[in-house]
Design a protein around this nucleic acid. Structure first.
Lengths: 208, 208
DNA sequence: GCCCGGTTCAAGCGCTCGTTTAAAATCGGG
DNA sequence: CCCGATTTTAAACGAGCGCTTGAACCGGGC
């Protein structure tokens, strides 16, 4: 039933890094939950940071692939994606992670959102390297689709998109509610939240 | 010249928590930089979390006060603030922190942004408690100013505003740039960034 | 049957963590 | 000037950290 030690460690690390953050998660917490030994981490991944790198890579790969695929679909036959196409493709690809068939969707999603918000510049760089290529191409196409907006403005709105997606995935948007207010504890439908997110990002890009 | 030990610790903690995050900052790093002894933290603040609480309180108080003042100014004489008023008041109050006369503005700003993004739910709660009252009133007024938008939609857009402000203050928006792209290393004018942020949030609230 | 490369393990390395203790330093009021 | 309270200090506590070591385990080919 259970996968190999290496994969079990990856899965647990993904979940715990996402829940507690990288710095606050000890290797022993990971290996205990994975039914493995601390030394196994250093054997398979070299170090704690190596483990993080492997988890980021595994989690990010399908997202990158899907975003690249959608972009190439848009560009096929000399097509020109508009802003809505690009935002939909980019944001929903990330947001839909949480709905993966296996039960790990929410964990992967939260993990990726959390990594994007980590304080340590090394970790941010690690993540940026992983995502780099594809994101750059989206920025290019966004510039092409918004000829009336200056490049720095497009770049800013692009960063807003990435940042909001990260907060959404980390679950950080959900509990920024003003708590003091009425109920609202209802876990508002996740699909509705994603729709709201896409709409918000689109509104930002379409601003005058 | 130097303030008392207590205030020096508060100042350094503010800076280091903002730079490295709470979990990754040791008490010894704080007290060393403050020229104080580790035990002084527990004497003055009881614990590491007590220190965090004190720093949040000190940093957040002027922001809360200013937001409250602006809101009451809008409401004076039966006035009714519109969306632009509310967003400007809320976002700029936070963003302008970085321009305080003393040199600590950027540190305070980064610290507050970082705390809003911390993974630990206890810390998030601590922050929410501190901000609570005032934010709830802004949400109320936003609902009043947007009669055509459903309450859950307004609540979502409100969370987008708070989240984006946090990312902006933490400096996380600045380096989500696609790195792979051209230069853009230019530290784009901070005022221009704030203007873009306000414009983006306004666009979100004004979406159909 | 035996050995071998790839894995996993218990144990321990040196170090840093948050916290505690008790003594020294500091200071204002009688 | 000295006393009592407040503040600051050095030193140590136990726990947990990331990482390393050397031995045990394991399945498959000679």
């Amino acid at each position: 039933m259970s996968a190999g030690t290496k994969d079990r460690i990856l899965g647990v690390a993904e979940r715990l890094f996402g829940e507690r953050g990288y710095a606050a998660t000890s290797l022993r917490a990971v290996t205990d939950a994975a039914g493995a030994n601390v030394a196994a981490v250093n054997y398979h991944f070299g170090s704690k940071e190596g483990l993080l790198r492997a988890v980021v890579d595994r989690a990010m790969r399908p997202v990158n692939d899907e975003r690249r695929r959608l972009l190439e679909e848009f560009l096929a036959d000399g097509g020109r994606p508009d802003v809505a196409d690009l935002v939909e493709a980019f944001v929903r690809t990330g947001a839909n992670l949480a709905r993966r068939r296996d039960g790990d969707g929410p964990a992967v999603s939260r993990f990726l959102g959390r990594v994007m918000c980590e304080p340590d510049p090394e970790i941010r760089q690690l993540f940026a390297d992983e995502v780099g290529g594809v994101e750059g191409r989206y920025l290019e196409e966004l510039n092409r689709a918004l000829p009336g907006v200056s490049a720095p403005d497009v770049a800013f709105r692009y960063r807003v998109m990435v940042g909001l997606l990260a907060l959404h995935q980390a679950g950080a948007l959900a509990d920024l509610a003003p708590h003091g207010a009425s109920g609202e504890t209802a876990p508002t439908d996740a699909d509705a939240e994603t729709d709201r997110l896409v709409a918000a990002v689109l509104a930002v890009f379409r601003a005058p």
